[in-house]
Design a protein around this nucleic acid. Sequence first.
DNA 1: ATTACTAGGTCGCGAGTAG
DNA 2: TCTACTCGCGACCTAGTAA
Lengths: 229, 229
Amino acid sequence: MVLIKKEDSLSFDEYGALKTLARIKKKHGSIRLSSSELGEMLLASQQTASRLLIKMEERGFIKRVLTGKKQNITLEEKGINALYEEMAELSDLLGIMENFSISGTVSSGLGEGRYYVSKKPYVVQFSEKLGIIPYPGTLNVKILSEDESKLRMLRANEGILIEGFESDDRTYGDVKAFGCRIKNVECAAIFPYRSVYKDIIEIISSEYLREKLSLNDGDLVKIDFTIRN
Amino acid sequence: MVLIKKEDSLSFDEYGALKTLARIKKKHGSIRLSSSELGEMLLASQQTASRLLIKMEERGFIKRVLTGKKQNITLEEKGINALYEEMAELSDLLGIMENFSISGTVSSGLGEGRYYVSKKPYVVQFSEKLGIIPYPGTLNVKILSEDESKLRMLRANEGILIEGFESDDRTYGDVKAFGCRIKNVECAAIFPYRSVYKDIIEIISSEYLREKLSLNDGDLVKIDFTIRN
DNA sequence: ATTACTAGGTCGCGAGTAG
DNA sequence: TCTACTCGCGACCTAGTAA
């Protein structure tokens, strides 16, 4: 049986192994073990652990460096994400973290945001799906390091899909949006669907937030999210 | 392979099925389906779904009532708990919810709490493991319904074990404690290890909290937790 | 020591089917 | 229709072992 096998999702074995590796990383900072050690932790044989590691590396969840005696293992983005996705699913299912906030400091610098608020196909969808006619500019918030895991979990949620499109010169990708509030002003956090993790959140709003909320670079802001799937 | 098979823990299949059932319950309020419907959702056969349901009922995760055409399924405490435990594990692993708070109203009424703060073997451990020499009385807080899922998740964490003991007249069970703060006063939430879920938290503290914080029945209090395993 | 291949055995899934 | 049994086959685990 292949239960709930969404493409690219983890098998049970992989999930268990990934959790074990994450636990080691949390405790020791890095992961260095032999296949028999892993096998022992998983209550499985050395061979099974070895096979698992190979499969997980093939599938891009981890990276390995064999150093004769042990293996140095690093969790790849995809592997970490898989855990956050599981977490997001459970959180949704159990109704935990329906409300939470992420804090960071206002920063300047242009991400992809300028496209989102200027290209019409995006703007139309923001209006329809979020009720936001974006002010032509995004507010960039650099997330406090202690809130980064919350950001990762947020991004692991489904969110509201803003579809990408093609134009003459280039392709504009899908975007994932989450409604949020800063000091009770409605806004939305937007993330490119396919992009590596960054510690920056780009916020769009119908208002010019910097002016409306008197924000300057370096100011601390709290972004309040309400997740409802 | 039987990966990470703590006694009584879920198999992958059971975990997946439980999540699916929980999702249905969240959406429809109750669970009513046939084994083939469940099989379809799990991308497995009717037979497998049937076997799973039987096994899960045997193991006490769910209860079933067969009504000819479909089955009415309810999630048992043990099943719900299993999901919260998984959530707690992931949350710990990923460093989410290291800090959170649960709110409720001050209520009177005596739970088991009076034993915890009066029986010496408990008191000794509170002192050693928590640094709290408990005031002889507990503060009972009735949790707001919207925070109940947080309470369940809290209880699914390991916590600090306060061991039970035997006395002449009866047995005093193990207790699970979590350090917390109310308005920056250090205290601890304590739960009998083996007990059904209640929406009451019993708080112990070195101080007489009602006086120290001028609390009366019905007052709203916020309990701040910091989880570190 | 390691990793990881091959071979063989076991476990569990799903087809068929009874009630 | 349902549930749930039997049973054959395939998947996957471990033992043995090479490198």
